[in-house]
C-alpha cells in the first residue's frame, strides 16, 4: 500500500459517480495531521461532491480508495466514518425542526464515544464553544439551523467541529455568508483545530479566508480532477487570474452545480 503512515486522510484514484455522471474523475489527496489544505476551483468543478463523497454521501457511487488514519473507509456508513474521526462542515446546513442543537450534539457525542457525558460537563463545554464562536447561548436550545442566518449556520458548523474534535475536518465553503468579524472567529476556530493536529480540507472560492487560516497546500479542482497543487501563493494567483487559464483542455462536468 502506498498510503503515508502518518496521513489522517488519503484518497487514491477517487472517482465519484452521481446519477450516471462521473463528477470526480480520479483524485489523489494526502493530508497529514495538523495540515490545512485548501481546495479551490470554479463552480461545478466537483468540490462539494468530493467532500460529500469522502463523508459517505449515500446517493453516490464511489470507486477508488479512501483511507482514514490508515484504515480503508470507502465502504463504511457516514456515521462510522464520523466515529473514526471524520467531520463534514456543510455548505448548506439543513434545518431539523424540533431537534435542538444541544440535543443533537449530545446524541452525536454519545454515539461517537459510546457513553454520555455528564450533563453538567457537556453543558460547560458547550457553553464555552458558544462563547468561543460568539454565538448567543440561547441558540443551543433552538432547533438545528432552523431560522438561522447563513452566517449563523456556518459558525454553528465550526462549533460542532470543535465539540466533536475530529481527526479530519472537511469544511465546505465555511466562509460564505460570513461578515469579516464572523470570518475571523470561524477562522480562529479552524486554526485551533489544526493546532490540535486535525487535518483540514478547506473548500473555498475565495482567498479571503486563507488570509486568516494559513494553508500548507492549495489544490485546484477543475472538471473533477486536481489540475494543480502548490503553496499558499497559488491562491493569490488564482484570485488574480481566475480559473479560465487552467480550464481549456478539461471540459466541465456538464450543467452540474455544487452538489
Amino acid at each position: 500500500m502506498s498510503y503515508l503512515n502518518n496521513a489522517v486522510l488519503e484518497c487514491r484514484n477517487l472517482r465519484v459517480i452521481v446519477d450516471d455522471n462521473e463528477i470526480i474523475r480520479g483524485v489523489d489527496l494526502t493530508i497529514a495531521p495538523g495540515e490545512v489544505h485548501a481546495l479551490m476551483g470554479p463552480n461545478g468543478s466537483g468540490k462539494s461532491t468530493l467532500v460529500n463523497a469522502l463523508a459517505g454521501h449515500p446517493g453516490y457511487r464511489v470507486e477508488g480508495e479512501i483511507w482514514l488514519n490508515g484504515e480503508q473507509v470507502q465502504s463504511l456508513e457516514p456515521e462510522e466514518r464520523a466515529h473514526k474521526g471524520l467531520f463534514l462542515g456543510f455548505q448548506y446546513p439543513v434545518a431539523i425542526p424540533g431537534v435542538t442543537t444541544s440535543t443533537m450534539l449530545r446524541t452525536a457525542l454519545k454515539a461517537k464515544q459510546g457513553e454520555a457525558h455528564a450533563p453538567s460537563v457537556f453543558l460547560k463545554e458547550l457553553k464555552r464553544a458558544f462563547s468561543r464562536l460568539d454565538i448567543p447561548w440561547e441558540f443551543a436550545s433552538r432547533y438545528i439551523n432552523d431560522g438561522f442566518s447563513g452566517g449563523e449556520k456556518k459558525r454553528l458548523e465550526v462549533l460542532q467541529m470543535l465539540m466533536l474534535e475530529p481527526r479530519v475536518a472537511l469544511l465546505d465553503e465555511i466562509d460564505s455568508g460570513l461578515d469579516i468579524d464572523a470570518l475571523k472567529v470561524a477562522a480562529s476556530g479552524i486554526q485551533q483545530i489544526a493546532e490540535q493536529n486535525t487535518g483540514v480540507l478547506l473548500v473555498t472560492h475565495y482567498q479571503r479566508i486563507l488570509a486568516h487560516v494559513k494553508p500548507h497546500v492549495v489544490h485546484v479542482l477543475v472538471g473533477g480532477r486536481i489540475v494543480k497543487s502548490g503553496g499558499p501563493e497559488q491562491a493569490l494567483e488564482l484570485e488574480d487570474r481566475g480559473y479560465e487559464w487552467l480550464e481549456p483542455e478539461i471540459p466541465l462536468a456538464a450543467g452540474r452545480g455544487a452538489t
Binding site: 459517505g56 456515521e79 431539523i96 424540533g98
Partner: peptide, 23 residues
C-alpha cells in the same frame, strides 16, 4: 445524512427527525 455525518446512526437519525416533527 447531516445527522449521520455527526456520528448518529441511521435508525436513530430517523427517530430524531420524527421526534422533532411531533415536538
Amino acid at each position: 445524512f447531516y445527522l449521520q455525518s455527526r456520528g448518529i446512526g441511521l435508525e436513530q437519525a430517523k427517530l430524531m427527525v420524527v421526534n422533532g416533527f411531533i415536538e
